[in-house]
């Protein structure tokens, strides 16, 4: 699974990085999301999905990397 973030949409809520600081970070300049770990391990997948669903602007999306990794 690969994470993509839409920095244009991101509202800088800090929600994602407060839940998963190992995956998400935030710019000091505009407060918008930065990706620390674009391809997290399978064990993180559920947590990342939970965070993506909570993101107030839908700026976090998840994408399959190849056929085995849907």
């Amino acid at each position: 699974m690969e994470i993509r973030v839409d920095r244009e949409r991101c509202a800088g809520s800090s929600l994602c990085l407060s839940y998963l600081p190992e995956v998400f970070d935030q710019s000091d300049d505009d407060g918008k999301v930065l990706l620390r770990t674009p391809v997290p391990g399978a064990d993180m997948e559920e947590a990342v999905r939970g965070v993506a669903a909570r993101c107030p602007t839908g700026a976090i999306t998840l994408h399959a990397r190849d056929a085995q990794d849907a």
Binding site: E8, G12, Q26, D28, D29, G31, K32
Partner: peptide, 17 residues
Amino acid sequence: HTRLRRMLTGEFTLRRV
């Protein structure tokens, strides 16, 4: 909205808080 909000969000990051 995007222009104004972006000027302020840097003041409300988790690190700042």
